[in-house]
Simulated scan of single mutants.
Amino acid sequence: MDLLPLRYFQVVARHEHISRAAAELRVSQPSLSRTIARLEKELGVPLFDRQGRHIRLNSYGAAFLTRVDRALTELDDGRQELADAAGPVRGSVSVASETLLTLASALVAFRAEHPEADVRISQSSGVRMLQRLRRGEVDLCLASQQIDDPELETAEVLREEAMLAVPFDHRLASRASVDIAELAGEPVITTNGEFWQRELTDRLFARAGLRPNVVSEGNELAATTFLISLGLGVGFLPEMASRHELGMVAFVRIDSPDCYRTLSFAWRRNGYLSLAARRFREHATESLRRDVHG
């Protein structure tokens, strides 16, 4: 069985859409459809249920996809392992992070030190990045959520305090610290439930017997500080942000012993992590720790 039809099937299965898969693969739709049809004929079963122009992965396809993902990942890992054994740090590294700003300075320094390594960073929510990691679409994830998955290996990067960000003219702006009870009724700027800020917000307010008055939620983390600076509400940001965004908002400590976030790298436990990925993980860990703790 040729590898190319398997890679085509993998992309079609992910999109469940021929035209989008063809665009990603840069092949014509008729050619892609014929390739999938030939694969199904070779296997003797349909891999997709077709309803007009719509396709859906069926039970045969889902079972086959699990095997295809595993086989292609093993081949890619083997190719990278040989490349690592043959020379210096090179190859590509794909990293998913909840915000690109977190890894920006580490990426610049790493590229200067290892110009032959191609590091690509993409933004994703905590839930979605771990899904991509399990599928082998990325090599590393930098996550703020607790990860409890036997398929994944993790390494803590740092634990940092989460602080309350408020507009400069806010009644709490000059305070050294506040209690969550003092935020009753305050408009809150936060993220949706796939990001750590929302989980932290809901947990702290629930412990105080309150419900947060969420007036804005989304997945554009960089917009949170901007919206707070406009006076639209208050919100929780990591200590790291207080070092870089001090001119936009005021930061106030929260009177709670567990008001923090934990940054961790995650990767597939049984997959091969390339030399370039391992070096980037080490480099980024050191860089982030210096950035927060000095």
Rank of each mutant, 00 (worst) to 15 (best):
D139C: 07
R132G: 13
E151L: 13
I121Y: 07
S144K: 07
R135S: 06
V119A: 02
E113K: 13
R128C: 06
Q145H: 15
C141P: 07
V108W: 14
A143L: 03
C141A: 09
I147K: 05
A112N: 14
A109F: 08
E153C: 07
H114Q: 05
L142N: 09
A106C: 12
R135T: 04
E116A: 04
L107R: 06
R135F: 13
Q123W: 02
G136E: 09
D148Y: 11
I121K: 00
E113P: 08
A143I: 15
V108Y: 15
R135C: 08
R134T: 06
P150L: 06
L140H: 14
R120C: 10
Q146S: 10
G136A: 06
M129N: 04
R132L: 11
Q145Y: 15
H114D: 01
R111K: 05
R135V: 03
L152V: 08
E116T: 02
Q123S: 03
E151P: 08
A109E: 15
L140W: 10
L152S: 01
R135G: 06
D148M: 08
H114K: 02
Q146Y: 13
E113Q: 13
A109Y: 07
E153F: 04
L130M: 04
R135Y: 09
S105A: 12
D139F: 11
V108P: 09
S105D: 14
S105I: 06
S124N: 03
L133F: 15
M129S: 04
V119G: 02
C141S: 03
G136W: 15
D118M: 04
I121L: 15
V119S: 00
S122T: 08
A106H: 09
T154Q: 14
E151M: 08
A112L: 14
R134Y: 03
A143P: 05
A106E: 12
